[in-house]
Design a binder for these strands. Structure first.
Length: 846
RNA sequence: GGGCAAGUGGUGGAAUGGUAUACACGCAGGACUUAAAAUCCUGUGGCCGCAAGGCUGUGAGGGUUCGACUCCCUCCUUGCCCACCA
C-alpha cells in the first residue's frame, strides 16, 4: 500500500478525530510544569484560510508541539477577530445579516483549521463578535472613561468617503483609506478618543526591554511614537502682540530665521489678516488649499506654495522683524502648526525662500565651504558646523549650541531691542522666558469611533440633564440590535433604530439617547490574548490567577503588517490593565516572530492579482502534512516564501519515503542495543541519529530554523535507507528501529498526522504528542578519524584523514612530507602554519 | 528624503572568520518496464582539459586577516516601513 491521496485522507481525518476525542491539547493551570504560551495572530473570519494563515499557524504549531514534547504546559489557543467592515459589505452584497455571515464564515474557517491539524485547545475558542466577548470591550471602555483615558472631542478627523466612516491616523496610508484605497478627506466631527499619548513615554521606553523582538519592528514602533527633543519658541505678532509658538528641533539656527510660516488652518491666521491689505489674497489661498486633500498636498512635494499675510513677527532672540507667511508645506497636525523658517539650513525653507525671493542668512559655517555666501548657495546646509551671526553663541559647535540656546531661552527675558514695544516685551515675561525646552511626540491619541454597525456599541448615554452617562455595569452588554438595515450609505446604522437609541437615563430616569458609534475593531484585538486565559468566564473580564500563570505570551507569531498598530495598541492596553491593578506585568509579548509573506511568481499572493493558491485544494491532493512540510522547508520563517507547485510534490515524496521505511523496514524486536558490538556502519548510523536530534533541537529552539532542521532529518533518512541489516541481524534491526523512531519523533511537530500513524504502528499506545522529545548522546557524535583540509596561502591543496585530536606536530609530519603539498611550497619559505584542530591546516609562505 | 532588511548555482536555500553551494527542487544519463508513471542509482557553478588536474567564482570596488559569503569603508540594486515631522 502506498501513501496515496486516499490513505492520506484516512490518516489525517483519523488523527484529527483522535485529538478531539482525547482532548490532547486541552490545558489547565498546572504549577508543577513550566508554562509556555504560544500565540498566533487570530484571523479575520473571511471564510477561507489563505497561505499566509497556513504559514503563520504552521510555524506556531511546530513551536507549540515541540515545547509540549519538551515537557512544557503549552497554551495554544485560537479565535476570530470577527467584527469589522467586510462583514457589513458582504451582508449588503449577499442580502444577509453580518452576524449570520460572520458565524457561517467562522464555521468554515474552523473546519479548515482543523484539517491542518493544528494543536489548539478548542475549548478556548472565541470570537470578538460574541456578546460574551464584546461586553468586556464595553467594560474596558467604561474603565477608561472613568480614568479619562477615553474621552470625546470635536476635531478635524480623517474621513473615508467610500466607507463613510472615520479613520485613525494609523489607518490612513499615503493619504488613502487602508482598506479601500479611497482618498481620505478631513471632516469636523465629535469623536471618541483613547489617550494613548499618556503612555507615550513608557511605550517608547519599554521597547528596550523587548529583547526578543525583531529589530525592525522596534524601529518602526520607535519611529511611530516619534519622540523628538526641541524648543518651543515664543514669537510675537508685531501689530496684535499675539504669541505665536513655534516648535523646532534646531534651536541652534534661531538667529538665521528670516521669515515665519503658519499652516493654512492655523487658528491665528484669521486675526492676523483681519486688517491686512492682503486679506483677500490670503483667504483665497486658504480656500484653495483646503479643497486639496491632505494626500494631494503631500504629493505636491516639489512645489511649495504660499502667500504673505502682511503681518510681521518679532524674533525674541534678537528683536528682528520677520514676515509671516502662510504655506501649504507647513502642517497643522505637527508641532504647533507654525515654523520659524531658516532657509540656509533647512532644504524645504530654502526651496520656498528661493521661490518667493525671501531673505537668507548663514548661521552655521559649512566646514567644507567656510567662505560660502548666501548668493552662492545651491541648497541648504543641514550638517554640523560652527555658529556665526549668532550673537553670544558665535564660535560654538552647533550640537553644543542646541543645548545652550535651549537653556538660555528658557531662562532669559527678551533682549532690550528698541523695536519692541513695552507691552510686547512684558508679555514675554509671563512666559518665564522666550522659549521652552520641550519634547514632542508624533504619536496622536487614538480615534476609536466608527459610524458602522458591525462593532462593539460604545456604552454611553446622552441625557439632556445629566450629560454623558456611562451605561451601568449590570446593564452590560449594550447589545447590537439585530433588526437593522445596513445600506452602507453612511451615517451610523445604529442611529436608525429607535428601540436602540431611545432609552431612559440611568441617573435621572428621563428620556435620553444612546451613543450610536461603534468601536474600531483594533480595540477588540488589543486584549484577546488575555481573554484566552479564561475564555468563558462570565463573571469577570479575566481571572487574575489564570492570567498570572499563563501571561505574558512567551511566543507571538504573526505578520509584519501589524508591526505598528495592533502591537502598539496591545502594549497600551496591557499597561492600562496594569495600572488598574488587574495584572502585574507591563509587556504582553516576550518574543515576537514576524513571518514573511507568501509569494507566487515573485508577487504577493492576493485575490486582486489572481495568483492565490487555495490551501484546501493542496490539502486535498497532498495532505496537510505535505503542505506543512513544504512551507517550513522552503524558506526560513521570517523570509519571503516563493510558492512552488513542484516542490510541494517533493515534500509529499519525502513523506512517502518515510511511509515505506516504516512499513517495510521496521520489524518489532526486543533486544538491547550494545554499543560494543558496533561496526563502522552502525557507528555511522548512530552518529547521524544523534546529530539529527542535536541539530533539530537547536535549530528549533535557537531561532526557528525549521528549514535546516528538516534537512537534518533528511540526512538521517538518507543514511538510514542505505543501512544494511546483514551480519548480526537482530542487533542491527534494533539499531535501525531506533533510527526510524527518531525520525518519526523529530518530524512529529512538523508533520503530526503521519507521525502519529507511524508511531502507533511501531509501538505507541499513546499520542506521539505526549512522548518526550528525544535526547542525544554527545559521545555518539565523536568520530575516530577526521578529515583535515590543507591550504597553502589560503588555497585548498589537499585533504587528509587523521585520528581525532592529532597534534600539530603529528599533522605537520605527514602533511609537509606529502608530495603534492611539497610541490606547492617548493622554493618558498614557510612563515607560519595555522592549525584549526580537527579541521584545517593553512601553510602561509612568503 | 530618512530608517530597516537583503543581494550566493537553472530554482528555493546552507555555511561559530576556516573545504562556498549542505538539504531539496529542476535538469541530464542509466537501471527496472512492451511503454509510461512511480521507484532506485549516477552526474550537475563557470571556463580550460580525453583525463589527472588547473584557473575562476557569493551585486561592484577597496581594506583588515595566514584565511572573508561572513568583519570594516565606498558604491549599486531590490524589498519593506516611514515621510513637506519643522
Amino acid at each position: 500500500m502506498a501513501y496515496t491521496t486516499h490513505e492520506i485522507k484516512r490518516i489525517e481525518t483519523k488523527w484529527q478525530q483522535y485529538w478531539a476525542d482525547h482532548q490532547t491539547f486541552k490545558v489547565s493551570v498546572d504549577h508543577k510544569k513550566p508554562k509556555y504560551y504560544c500565540l498566533e495572530m487570530f484571523p479575520y473570519p473571511s471564510g477561507k484560510i489563505h497561505m499566509g494563515h497556513v504559514r503563520n499557524y504552521t510555524i506556531a504549531d511546530v513551536v507549540a508541539r515541540f515545547k509540549m514534547m519538551q515537557g512544557y504546559n503549552v497554551l495554544h489557543p485560537i479565535g476570530y477577530d470577527a467584527f469589522g467592515q467586510p462583514a457589513e459589505n458582504a451582508a449588503i452584497k449577499n442580502k444577509t445579516h453580518p452576524a449570520e455571515w460572520t458565524y457561517h464564515c467562522i464555521e468554515q474557517m474552523r473546519e479548515e483549521l482543523k484539517s491542518m491539524g493544528f494543536s489548539y485547545d478548542w475549548d478556548r475558542e472565541l470570537a470578538t463578535c460574541d456578546r460574551e466577548y464584546y461586553r468586556w470591550n464595553q467594560w474596558i471602555f467604561l474603565k477608561m472613561f472613568e480614568c479619562g483615558i477615553a474621552y470625546k472631542k470635536a476635531s478635524s478627523v480623517n474621513w473615508c468617503p467610500s466607507c463613510e466612516t472615520t479613520l485613525a491616523n494609523e489607518e490612513v496610508i499615503q493619504g488613502e483609506c487602508w482598506r479601500c484605497k479611497t482618498k481620505v478627506i478631513q471632516k469636523d466631527l465629535e469623536q471618541w478618543y483613547l489617550k494613548i499619548t499618556q503612555y507615550a513615554e513608557e511605550l517608547l521606553e519599554d521597547l528596550k526591554t523587548l529583547k526578543h523582538w525583531p529589530e525592525r519592528v522596534l524601529t518602526m514602533q520607535e519611529n511611530w511614537i516619534g519622540k523628538s527633543y526641541g524648543v518651543e519658541i515664543y514669537f510675537k505678532a508685531k501689530k496684535t502682540g499675539e504669541t505665536i509658538p513655534v516648535f523646532t528641533t534646531r534651536p541652534d539656527t534661531i538667529f538665521g530665521a528670516t521669515y515665519m510660516v503658519l499652516a493654512p488652518e492655523h487658528p491665528l491666521v484669521e486675526k492676523l489678516i483681519k486688517d491686512s491689505p492682503h486679506r483677500g489674497k490670503v483667504q483665497a489661498f486658504i480656500d484653495k488649499t483646503a479643497k486639496k486633500s491632505k494626500s494631494l498636498r503631500m504629493m505636491g512635494e516639489l512645489q511649495k506654495k504660499g502667500v504673505f499675510t502682511g503681518e510681521y513677527a518679532i524674533n525674541p532672540v534678537n528683536g528682528e522683524t520677520i514676515p509671516i507667511w502662510i504655506a501649504d508645506y507647513v502642517l497643522m497636525e505637527y508641532g504647533t502648526g507654525a515654523i520659524m523658517a531658516v532657509p540656509t539650513h533647512d532644504q524645504r525653507d530654502f526651496l520656498f525662500a528661493k521661490e518667493y525671493k525671501l531673505p537668507m542668512r548663514i548661521v552655521i559655517q559649512d566646514p567644507r565651504n567656510p567662505n560660502a555666501r548666501v548668493e552662492d548657495l545651491e541648497q541648504a546646509f543641514e550638517g554640523d558646523g560652527i555658529l556665526v551671526n549668532s550673537a553670544q553663541f558665535n564660535g560654538l559647535n552647533n550640537q553644543e549650541a542646541k543645548k545652550k540656546i535651549g537653556e538660555w531661552m528658557s531662562a532669559e527675558l527678551p533682549p532690550q531691542f528698541g523695536e519692541i514695544s513695552p507691552e510686547i516685551r512684558d508679555s514675554w515675561r509671563t512666559n518665564k522666558g522666550i522659549g521652552k525646552i520641550t519634547v514632542h511626540w508624533r504619536l496622536r491619541d487614538w480615534l476609536i469611533s466608527r459610524q458602522r454597525y458591525w462593532g462593539t456599541p460604545i456604552p454611553i448615554i446622552y441625557c439632556g440633564r445629566c450629560g454623558m452617562v456611562p451605561v451601568p455595569d449590570d446593564q452590560l452588554p449594550v447589545e447590537l440590535p439585530e433588526k437593522i438595515k445596513i445600506t452602507g450609505l453612511g451615517g451610523s446604522p445604529l442611529a436608525q433604530s429607535k428601540e436602540f437609541v431611545n432609552i431612559k437615563c440611568p441617573k435621572c430616569g428621563k428620556s435620553a439617547k444612546r451613543e450610536t458609534d461603534t468601536m474600531a475593531t483594533f480595540f477588540d484585538s488589543s486584549w484577546y490574548f488575555l481573554r484566552y486565559c479564561c475564555a468563558h468566564d462570565d463573571k469577570q473580564i479575566f481571572d487574575k490567577k489564570e492570567v498570572a500563570y499563563w501571561m505574558p505570551v512567551d511566543q507571538y507569531i504573526g505578520g509584519i503588517e501589524h508591526a505598528i498598530l495592533h502591537l502598539l495598541y496591545s502594549r497600551f492596553f496591557t499597561k492600562f490593565f496594569r495600572d488598574l491593578g488587574l495584572i502585574n506585568f507591563s509587556e504582553p509579548f516576550q518574543r515576537l516572530l514576524t513571518q514573511g509573506m507568501v509569494l507566487k511568481d515573485g508577487e504577493v499572493m492576493s485575490k486582486s492579482k489572481g495568483n492565490t493558491v487555495d490551501p484546501d485544494s493542496v490539502v486535498d491532493k497532498y495532505g496537510a502534512d505535505a503542505l506543512r512540510l513544504f512551507i517550513l522547508f522552503a524558506a526560513p520563517p521570517e523570509d519571503q516564501l516563493e510558492w512552488n507547485d513542484a516542490a510541494i510534490e517533493g515534500s509529499w515524496k519525502f513523506l512517502n519515503r518515510i511511509w515505506h521505511v516504516v512499513n517495510q523496514r521496521y520489524k518489532a524486536i526486543n533486544i538491547k542495543i550494545d554499543s560494543r558490538q558496533f561496526d563502522e556502519q552502525d557507528k555511522n548510523l548512530e552518529r547521524d541519529r544523534n546529530a539529527a536530534i542535536k541539530e533539530v533541537t537547536e535549530d528549533i529552539s535557537e531561532g526557528f530554523k525549521f528549514n535546516t532542521a528538516i534537512s537534518q532529518v533528511m540526512i538521517l533518512m538518507n543514511t538510514l535507507e542505505k543501512y544494511q541489516v546483514t551480519a548480526n541481524p537482530q542487533h542491527k534491526q534494533a539499531l535501525l528501529n531506533d533510527a526510524i523512531k527518531t525520525v518519526i519523533l523529530l518530524l512529529s511537530p512538523f508533520t503530526p498526522h503521519l507521525c502519529e500513524e507511524m508511531w502507533e504502528k511501531m509501538s505507541g499506545k499513546e499520542s506521539i504528542a505526549k512522548i518526550a522529545w528525544p535526547q542525544y548522546n554527545e559521545n555518539a557524535l565523536k568520530k575516530d578519524l577526521v578529515q583535515i583540509v590543507v591550504q597553502v596561502d589560503g588555497k585548498l591543496r589537499g585533504k587528509f584523514m587523521f585520528p581525532v585530536d592529532s597534534t600539530q606536530e603529528q599533522l605537520k609530519i605527514v602533511i609537509l612530507d606529502d608530495a603534492k603539498i611539497k610541490q606547492y611550497i617548493q622554493g618558498k619559505t614557510i612563515q607560519k602554519v595555522i592549525v584549526v584542530p580537527n579541521k584545517l591546516v593553512n601553510i602561509a609562505t612568503s
